[in-house]
Design a protein around this nucleic acid. Structure first.
Lengths: 235, 235
DNA sequence: ATTAAAAAGTGACAAATGTCATAAAACGAC
DNA sequence: GTCGTTTTATGACATTTGTCACTTTTTAAT
C-alpha cells in the first residue's frame, strides 16, 4: 500500500498563502502548523467515504480531488472538485454529521489534516476565521442551489456546455486553450447528471460543430462564446 | 398596499424559543430584540428578489415562505421552505453576495428583521452562536447536495414520492394523515423539477394506486411505506 | 512487448418526459 | 352571486434521454 505516504515537513506548508487563514495571528498559524499532519495521496485513493465519520478537515496543498455522492443505484454524482487551497471535510465536522460525500483523489495530492478540535477551537477564538469559513460555506451553498436549478431545468446539452465552462473556470486552459484537467467521459457524465453514452454523443456533436476539439481526454475549447450561448450561462 | 404591516411589539417575540439563539446571554437577547423590526406579510408577498441586496436576516416567527431560484426561462425551482423558527436571507448577508434566491410568502407570516451589522457583530462576539449558525449552514449544504443528486439520478415518479415525504417531515400530517401544507400542482412541479402536467398525471396514478387521496390541494397520505419504497428514500 | 481490463464509441430501440391544445373546475375580486 | 382568471385535468404527440449490445481503442500492469 503505497497509496498514502507520510510527509514529515508540514512546516514547509505556508498556510498564509491560502486566503482562508489570513485573519490568523502568527501564534495561531504556528500552532496550526504543529497540529497538522501531511500526507501524499495517489490517484484513485479515497480520503473518506460517504457515511464515515470524519473529525477534522483536510487542506489541499496540491492536487485535485473529486467530491461526490453515490445515488441509491450506485451511480456517482460529482458535487465539486477540490484543488490547491481548498478545505474538505469540514462540513461534516462542523455539522456533526456523518460524511455525506466521498472524496477521491483525481490528481496525486498533498493533503494536510487538521483535527476537528483545533478547527472548532479556532472558530471560537478567532471570529475573523469563523467569518471566513462561514462565507466559504455560504458561497458553496449558493453554488449548490444554482447547480440544483440547472440540473432540474436545463437539457443535457446545456448542462454539458456549462460543465465545460465550469471546468475552464476552475482549472483554467493551457496556452493551447485545452482544459487543464482530464476526466473520463464517465466522470463528465457524473458531473452533468446523465449517461456516459449521452456525453460521448454530445461531445462528438460539439466537435462537429467546431466548438471543441477532442484528443483522448484532452478537451480544447474552440468557441467559448458559442458554448456560453448553448449552456445559457450568464455572468 | 396592505400586504405588509408593521408590528410594534417585537419584544413579545421570544428569541430563546428558537434553538439557534440558545447560546446568547440575556443582554445579547435584549439588544437583539431592540434591534429587530417585525412585520406581518400576506400570502403572495415577496420578501426579497433574486439579485437584490439584502443586508440582514429575517426570523420567521410564524408562517411559511418558499425560497426559490428562477431558471433562465423563468421557471421557478423551489429550494426549500422556511417556517417558524427558520432564518432566511443570512446566506447572502454573510457571503456578501446578492440574493441568489427569491423568498415569497406562502402562508401569511410574521417576520422579524435583524440588520446585518447586528448579525455579524453577534457572530464575532459570541462563538457559540457562530458555531450554531455554521452548523445550520453546513446542514443546509448537505441537504442541497443530497437533493442535487436525487434530481440528477431519480425519475420524476421517485422524486414526487420523495417530495411528498419531505413535505410530511417538514410540515407534518394532521389527524387525518393530510399534509399540513397545501401547494398548487405547479408549486409541486417546481419542487420536483418537472412539468406541471407530469405532477398532475403522477398524482392521479398515486391516487389510483391507493397511495394518496386527493381533495383539491389537500393531499392525504394513505400508504407511507409504499411511498418510501417508490421514492427510494432511505432513513 | 504482451495482455487483460477499462474506456470510448456507435447503432437500434424503448421509455420517460415535455409540449401543446383544449376543456372543465375552482378560486378570488367586486 | 357573477365574471374573469387561475388552476386542474386530459389526450395526442414530439423529443429527449436512457438502455442494451457490441466493437474498437486506450490504458495500465506485468
Amino acid at each position: 500500500m503505497k497509496n498514502i505516504q507520510n510527509v514529515p515537513f508540514s512546516d514547509e506548508v505556508d498556510l498564509l498563502s491560502y486566503g482562508i487563514f489570513n485573519g490568523l495571528t502568527d501564534e495561531e498559524i504556528d500552532s496550526l502548523t504543529q497540529s497538522m499532519s501531511c500526507t501524499l495521496h495517489k490517484r484513485g485513493n479515497i480520503l473518506y467515504h460517504e457515511g464515515s465519520r470524519i473529525n477534522g478537515t483536510y487542506i489541499v496543498v496540491k492536487g485535485i480531488l473529486k467530491i461526490y455522492k453515490t445515488g441509491f443505484d450506485g451511480k456517482e454524482q460529482i458535487i465539486r472538485f477540490a484543488k490547491d487551497g481548498d478545505l474538505i471535510g469540514f462540513r461534516s465536522t462542523i455539522s456533526d454529521e456523518l460524511a455525506c460525500t466521498t472524496a477521491k483523489v483525481v490528481n496525486d495530492a498533498l493533503l494536510c489534516y487538521l483535527p476537528g478540535e483545533i478547527l472548532t477551537s479556532l472558530i471560537k477564538v478567532n471570529p475573523e476565521f469563523a467569518m471566513s469559513l462561514m462565507k466559504l460555506t455560504c458561497r458553496e451553498l449558493g453554488e449548490s442551489n444554482k447547480f440544483l436549478t440547472d440540473i432540474a431545468q436545463k437539457t443535457v446539452r446545456e448542462r454539458l456546455a456549462e460543465v465545460l465552462l465550469l471546468l475552464m473556470d476552475t482549472f483554467d486552459l493551457d496556452e493551447d486553450h485545452t482544459l487543464q484537467i482530464s476526466l473520463t467521459r464517465e466522470e463528465l457524465a457524473n458531473m452533468v447528471g446523465t449517461a456516459t453514452e449521452s456525453v460521448i454523443r454530445l461531445l462528438s456533436e460539439f466537435k462537429s460543430d467546431k466548438l471543441i476539439e477532442l484528443n483522448g481526454r484532452k478537451i480544447k475549447l474552440l468557441n467559448i462564446q458559442k458554448l456560453i450561448k448553448i449552456g445559457n450561462v450568464y455572468i
